[in-house]
Design a protein around this nucleic acid. Structure first.
Lengths: 225, 225
DNA sequence: AATGTTCTTTTAGTATACAACATTTTTGTA
DNA sequence: TACAAAAATGTTGTATACTAAAAGAACATT
């Protein structure tokens, strides 16, 4: 179910990737705040490694746009403005549309079953009320759609864009009113995908994202204002 | 008068970025072929630097999908399959659509002028017949549209996706029949953007990309078959 | 007191050394 | 001759040392 987290004990992970994931999570969860400097020696000591893996991890974060490099000065966590978030969401909407369109065309019987199972899991976890778990279950559901779309590159980009919004998605889910809405949207999406009704499925996804855009904008404005 | 050191600052590029650009160009131009191993010491000697900047450059190429890392083995130039290219083009089409849509909504008078100038340049360079220059002028034209869309993230992704196709775009342009077609499409796009005719502009762009998909697929099949 | 200069400290940029691991080759035995 | 085990070779992964540059503090000069 979760190929990304099925960690094989025999599988080797270079330190740079461990550091990369650690720093990324820290940034996305807000533990490292925008504007904060990332000092190599300090981070190296804190994580118990040398500067080399730290540097290589920062190079990757740089290309992801999560950190900003200032020549001969160092790296700092990139600022997140309302505009930068709007930018991300515009792109994400276009790509979510594409993924659901492709899923309609390419989904297999097995994938439909997986999708139904993901929706079932989501429904169950929704009752628990644990925001983190709900967010994860929501990601799972969308991940099945991404895989059904059968486009590696698209999946990679969507995962990336999704993670960029991590902290805001959690805020958004703290409002229990959206639960029912989300569930309904999931059901509708499944229904349309199963029947291959491309236009209708795309329409639902658009609304889905638009709702998020509105909610997230609220969160941002509230935080800043 | 105190000399201005800020200009010098801007001219400074870390070695890793020089290496990054160099390797990237080499891969995109086909000098480094798919499957070829990237050995750090060898590259370091060749470029006259130490291993560190080479490694950091490879980290960035890795995240761009241009090289594939095999743990404890090293980096190799990523294979380009017909499927991986189809994947890229599907995403690119969705994002080009988005960019032209946004451009219709947001373009300024100055930008319209820039766009006309870019089209004019393209027309002029087309006559020279130099494929590399034509490709560059085409990129310029699209770049103006990207900027008019006023979405940083979108621009970054489109530039990246565009570069992935560099070598195939050049092949595509070797067929002089496409020149007239391209020019016509540019004119039409400008016309529609100026009038803010979103749907029509999007339609042209779709055709534009679809043509490229067909042409590139041909090139791939010919090379492989 | 304000300003300018120099020295110290800190940090990134780069090179190199060393260890862990994988692959290949060689050698010994059946 | 074939096959397996062990050594040799080469490459990456990680740590550290060295250099250059920028920021900040202290001191001197006006």
């Amino acid at each position: 179910m979760t190929p990304n987290f099925q960690v094989n004990m025999n599988e080797y992970l270079p330190l740079r990737d461990v550091v990369f994931n650690t720093l990324r999570q820290a940034i996305l969860k807000g533990e490292l705040k925008p504007g904060e400097r990332l000092m190599e020696i300090q981070l190296a000591n804190k994580l118990g490694v040398s500067r080399t893996p730290i540097r290589e991890a920062i190079r990757k974060l740089e290309l992801e746009g999560l950190v900003l490099m200032i020549p001969r000065k160092g790296a700092e966590v990139a600022e997140i403005t309302e505009k930068s978030l709007r930018d991300v969401l515009e792109v994400r909407k276009a790509l979510e549309e594409l993924s659901v369109q492709l899923a309609c065309e390419r989904i297999t019987k097995d994938m439909v079953k997986e999708l139904e199972k993901a929706a079932e899991d989501f429904r169950r976890i929704l009752k628990s009320g644990d925001v983190t778990e709900i967010a994860q279950a929501d990601v799972q559901f969308h991940d099945v759609i991404y895989r059904a779309a059968d486009n590696q590159r698209l999946m990679q980009l969507l995962n990336n864009l999704g993670e960029q919004m991590y902290r805001y998605r959690v805020e958004y889910l703290k409002n229990p009113e959206v639960f029912g809405q989300l569930l309904k949207e999931h059901e509708e999406i499944i229904c349309h995908i199963r029947k291959g009704e491309k236009e209708k499925a795309v329409k639902i996804v658009c609304e889905h994202i638009d709702n998020q855009v509105a909610a997230v904008s609220d969160v941002i404005r509230t935080k800043q204002g």
